[in-house]
């Protein structure tokens, strides 16, 4: 799991959209698993900052959307959606509409949808940034568990340094305009992790130092 940290406007989300094939690079190329990215593909799942659920569909049908668009048969879709509902802890809310769910539950559903086609790479664009701190911490922990279960490569964009260091094995630090990778900080720590682990706070200090060296006030990234 890799995290990308940087201030607003450093191009974190742009980088994620490049990896996901939603944007084309002006120069150079992006490759994922040895394959060039030329457009969105089924091996990449994306979870956006907002849940982007279809308000007229229940949770199960929302999660099944990628499979529906890919032409997966209905019964297979249903089975997989059920499985994912359990995985993200939304059991019992299969038919609930997004407006009936809390922000955290909506983001769980969005996460499940991103996993629907069993992607080998999961791109997360500040998925929990709109949630309150308590919900965010809980979802961070669940994401860690999920990552262990699904064995998916995760690229997480965030402006939350502790979150990045808690979740990632590697934290890439981007500077403000122009967006450049100014540091590549490994987080040496086994799993499952806990928030208080010293390795995480060490990594967090290293990230902050790297940001300061690049001339970005750390306050802008959120401590």
């Amino acid at each position: 799991m890799t995290a990308i940290v940087g201030p607003n406007g450093s191009g974190k989300s742009t980088l994620l959209r490049l990896i996901g094939g939603l944007l084309a690079p002006d120069s150079g190329h992006i490759s994922v698993g040895g394959r060039m990215v030329t457009g969105p593909g089924p091996h990449i799942g994306i979870c956006f900052q907002e849940p982007r659920l279809l308000p007229w569909r229940g949770v199960q049908d929302n999660i099944a959307l990628p499979m529906e668009l890919a032409g997966v048969p209905a019964d297979e879709r249903r089975a997989r959606a059920r499985e994912l509902i359990d995985l993200v802890g939304l059991a019992g809310f299969d038919q609930a509409r997004p407006h009936q769910l809390s922000g955290g539950m909506r983001q769980r559903a969005a996460l499940a949808r991103a996993l629907a086609l069993r992607p080998s790479v999961l791109l997360l664009d500040e998925p929990f940034s709109a949630l309150d701190a308590l919900t965010r911490e809980r979802l961070d922990e669940e994401l860690q568990a999920l990552w262990a279960q699904t064995a998916t490569t995760i690229v997480l964009v965030t402006h939350d340094i502790p979150e990045a260091c808690f979740l990632a094995d590697r934290v890439l630090v981007l500077s403000a305009r122009p967006g450049r990778v100014v540091a590549d900080i490994p987080v040496a720590q086994g799993r499952p992790r806990r928030r208080e682990d010293p390795a995480a706070s060490q990594a967090a200090s290293a990230v902050r130092a790297a940001l300061e060296r690049s001339g970005t006030p750390v306050a802008e990234v959120a401590a």
Binding site: G20, L22, G41, P42, E50, R52, L65, P66, L69
Partner: peptide, 17 residues
């Protein structure tokens, strides 16, 4: 919502879809 359209693109939805 433009976000929904981007979601559609990320899922490689056809024009008709």
């Amino acid at each position: 919502d433009a976000g929904l359209l981007e979601l559609g693109r990320s899922l490689r939805a056809t024009r008709w879809q």
